[in-house]
Amino acid sequence: MHKAQLRVFFLVLFTALLIGGCSSIPKEQRDPRDPWQPYNRAMFRFNTDFDNAFFKPAAQGYQAITPEPVNHGITNFFNNVADVTSAVNNVLQFKLSRAGTDVGRVLVNTTVGLVGFIDVATNMGIPSYKEDFGQTLGYWGFGDGPYFVMPILGPSSVRDTFGFAGDVLIDPFFSLQKDEIYWGFVVLRAIDTRAGLLAAGDLVDEAALDRYAFVRDAYLQRRRNLVHDGNPPADQDDDLFWDEDVIDQ
């Protein structure tokens, strides 16, 4: 897949989003945050099956064969790259002090930390913020919009789906000229991230009666908290593009 084909991918996502809006469920089962629940549940099942068949085994194999220091170093490397994206988003949010902290983390970890494989910045007490473009859109007043499960990528919202597209464009790896190297980094980062979530996934399976609802509620609560820097307002209606009366029509 060439990077130009990302445009097709995002078009497919947007089309799926529109199609999902055509589904309906009984009014008593509706959640104003999740009006496309039939589509979302179907995509959640597909993603779960895909993960169990391919992604989870790959992550387990990666974790089994990768020595812990190397595994930890790779995670640190990708976190260092994420600090670059975070710095851009903090600038877009006019959080210049945080942007400066992100830049400081990148400089320290890239030099003293051997291109980010050692997280020297955290050991020095330099905080990590990890702002993304979805949070930037939220900062500028864009509500979450309906909950939306993306193919393969998982839980999202209308705002965060477009935010994901923005993060792809400002990701440092996106400037790589060779597609093979770019997609190699993408796959490695995805597997490394999934490996870090293996234990959490087992806990969800044990704790949740309705795994879909558990993941949805946890995702939306976490994103709301992140957008408002840990201090979300009491009224959640501001996070919707439209209210429940519109959804009921």
Rank of each mutant, 00 (worst) to 15 (best):
G138D: 06
R211Q: 14
D132P: 01
P233H: 10
R7D: 10
I152F: 15
A218P: 02
L6M: 14
F241D: 05
V204S: 10
V215W: 00
I65F: 13
L203A: 13
R159T: 04
T110P: 02
T75R: 14
D49M: 11
L17C: 06
F214G: 00
K3V: 07
M150L: 15
A234E: 15
L6E: 11
Q221W: 04
D202Q: 15
F173C: 01
R222N: 13
G163Y: 03
R216K: 15
V88T: 04
W183K: 08
P35F: 06
G145M: 01
T111R: 07
P155L: 08
E68K: 13
I74T: 01
A234K: 14
R223A: 05
G166N: 07
V204P: 00
F133M: 10
T66S: 12
Q60G: 05
F164L: 15
I74N: 03
T161I: 03
A82V: 03
P233C: 08
D243G: 11
G21P: 09
V112L: 15
L107N: 01
I126H: 04
L107R: 07
F148E: 04
Q177G: 15
T85M: 05
F185V: 02
G20Q: 08
V187E: 08
V204G: 09
G143Q: 02
Y129R: 01
Q5I: 12
G104F: 01
R194D: 04
V246Y: 15
A64I: 08
L209M: 13
P32T: 04
W242N: 10
I191A: 03
R105V: 08
D202T: 13
